[in-house]
Design a binder for these strands. Structure first.
Lengths: 226, 226
DNA sequence: CAAGAAATATGATTTTTATCATATAAAAGT
DNA sequence: ACTTTTATATGATAAAAATCATATTTCTTG
């Protein structure tokens, strides 16, 4: 069992507010998991008995729409906590969490977290701030979905992927998503997504090398995202 | 100055967790406002110095999209607190709040609320739960926007308006919104909204009497909303 | 009450996006 | 290495939705 105290990702999450004692206590009750690409951490409707802290890897939070398509609501990476909302609301998960590459996550039981809530004010304020940030993002995302064209949303998403997950040495987006996943992120049909990527390629804004996407004219894309 | 202790709407919000003393303290520092239909309570980008408790009336939280259209993110009614997110995140408001009919609101300074956060655990849990509820709603709304047709979203919205704000004696939706506002709620062009309402009327699902909307075949609308 | 303004309604047209079909390329299994 | 499967790509077409134009109705206000 590894020590939470020495875990780097802790610094990036609400958990940074925890003291030595609390971390020791948490290390004693946490469980570590490895989740393979494509596997779920939890699924929509499931009752969560705690939260998951992402140690490594990237995951998607998605929701199955009544039309049978999967809409990606949010991408999550190391340092983030999953399942906070369900835990606080005392409801089952409203989203599925699925690994986009191999992930390492720690499960922390509900009880433990609720204990921190009671005793550590800074921690609960951190959690609140995170959820408020999520809410703001969700609202912004919603307005995008409702008001922008698919083409704008694609540009917006490409910029977001570069800003959030960075790029490889060759300049390509670090996070490699399938066209279907990109489509799920912007809320469009896979074919439309592929077509618009082709358009951007023809216009010289991006380069496509297999699954890799390289942003060539960032500023132009930013302009298009409005 | 009226007493918060006797205010009915308090029972419906996070504020129900406050004790007698806290309520007395709050009554002493709150300010009551009357806001006329169409007037803003606060606007996007504004720095809020506290939260607003809605005593009476209905308001819309909206965001101006880069295409110049106003997207309504949420409707709010008595009992709800506005500006919680901004206060917790310590950021300016990301939405505008505008009265849809004459409203009465009480302003409670930031300091006061933060004090309750520190001392009253039940209160902060309540606030957290509310924000978690908002987040879930926002996610659901986002998926609707991304995946459903305008026609489905209109059906969904009509049902939502009936369920949330009720109906008058003649069966018409209690909350009278302009066609433009309904369009802003479902994220479409005003003309499209009007056209689809006409379609629903022709199909005998609703009745339009001036600005009034009467839902005739609720179950059919619910089916269409999927 | 009349005139102007604003909201609602509807038609015509264009643009956007989804869907269906099929081809090609890449990945995976045997 | 070859076959099968899956992902990507592109064309053709249909459907959905936006836009522009123009009535018509309702609401305001002098």
């Amino acid at each position: 069992m590894s020590k939470c105290e020495q875990c780097i990702v802790r610094q990036f999450s609400s958990l940074k507010a925890l003291g030595k004692e609390e971390l020791l206590k948490m290390a004693n009750c946490k469980t570590s998991y490895t989740i393979k690409k494509g596997e779920p951490i939890f699924e929509e409707g499931e009752t969560l008995k705690g939260v998951f802290c992402i140690k490594d890897g990237v995951g998607k939070l998605s929701k199955l729409s009544s039309n049978g398509k999967d809409q990606i609501v949010k991408l999550v990476k190391s340092g983030e906590l999953l399942g906070q909302r369900s835990m606080i609301s005392e409801e089952s998960a409203n989203l599925s969490a699925i690994a986009l590459n191999d992930m390492e996550v720690c499960f922390i039981p509900r009880k433990e977290i609720l204990g921190f809530f009671d005793k550590n004010n800074e921690f609960s304020m951190n959690v609140m701030k995170t959820i408020c940030g999520d809410l703001k993002e969700a609202d912004d995302h919603m307005v995008s979905m409702a008001q922008k064209s698919v083409k704008s949303r694609l540009a917006e998403t490409l910029i977001y992927l570069e800003d959030t997950f960075g790029k490889n040495d060759d300049g390509s987006l670090y996070l490699q998503l399938s066209r279907e996943e990109i489509a799920g992120l912007i809320g469009t049909a896979t074919e439309s997504c592929i077509r618009l990527l082709s358009d951007y390629k023809k216009e010289g804004l991006i380069e496509l090398v297999g699954k890799k996407i390289i942003i060539l004219k960032r500023n132009e894309l930013i302009k298009l995202s409005n």
